[in-house]
């Protein structure tokens, strides 16, 4: 009888341990991040200056098997202006030029966390993002403005980490590559500023509520 009691206590203690182990895992995080962005490829031919104005907000759930899934919405703004000559296929333009991009990615993601224990301060992860990018591209030449605006399908990988600072507060740091396909171009009176693909790189840092 004593043995049975002892086994029962051990069993119940084990359950408690399992439960506590489960509770010590990071279940999800909700982050708000400052976002920087760097154009690549054709996009950098249009604006090669980095974007220091942007943000991203994301939700990430982590399963017991360390699979992550979630979503994010962000915004990056690029702008530059200069006076000079730009040549193109059948001509050239000289004068004042103002250029800007607005990127608004709305993405879902799935990935893998290399660990999910609260005991470890750092939870590194890798994930794939896919979704829609709302992109507004504008070129002002003199007093005229050409614009290409629309939704673009896009995707890209992300590598990051969540630092557990305690009291449900986390610090996030991540880097991601984004590739948005052409939206077919937008014509404004038969004028369009471009019909290309857009690629850019994000480096984000932020704060998170982790549970």
């Amino acid at each position: 009888m004593k043995k049975l009691k002892l086994l029962s206590v051990i069993f119940l203690f084990s359950l408690l341990f399992i439960s506590k182990e489960g509770f010590s895992q990071i279940k999800y995080s909700f982050a708000f991040e400052y976002s920087t962005a760097f154009n690549l490829g054709d996009a950098s031919n249009f604006i090669d200056k980095p974007s220091w104005g942007g943000f991203s907000t994301s939700f990430k759930a982590i399963t017991n098997k360390k699979i992550t899934y979630g979503g994010e919405i962000g915004w990056n703004i690029f702008n530059t202006d200069f006076t000079g000559t730009t040549t193109f296929e059948n001509g050239a333009v000289t004068g004042y030029q103002g250029r800007y991009y607005n990127y608004v990615p709305i993405l879902v993601n799935v990935g893998y966390a290399f660990q999910n224990s609260r005991k470890s301060k750092i939870t590194p992860y890798i994930q794939a993002n896919v979704g829609a990018f709302y992109i507004d591209q504008q070129l002002q030449v003199g007093v005229a403005t050409l614009e290409n605006t629309g939704w673009n399908f896009g995707f890209g990988p992300e590598l990051g980490l969540i630092y557990n600072a305690g009291n449900n507060l986390g610090i996030t740091f991540n880097a991601k590559y984004n590739y948005a396909l052409s939206n077919g171009g937008t014509n404004y009176g038969e004028k369009t500023v471009g019909d290309g693909t857009y690629s850019f790189f994000n480096v984000n840092i932020g704060i998170a509520y982790i549970q």
Binding site: G53, F55, W75, I77, G91, V93, Y96, G142, A144
Partner: peptide, 26 residues
């Protein structure tokens, strides 16, 4: 973010907006 980064390239009196566009049949 909106106020500091949504730059409006409006017209101002200090900028030279003269422009020259050339096109040709290549």
């Amino acid at each position: 973010i909106f106020s500091s980064c949504y730059y409006d390239y409006g017209l101002d009196s200090d900028t030279n907006y003269d422009m020259v566009v050339t096109l040709y049949n290549n």
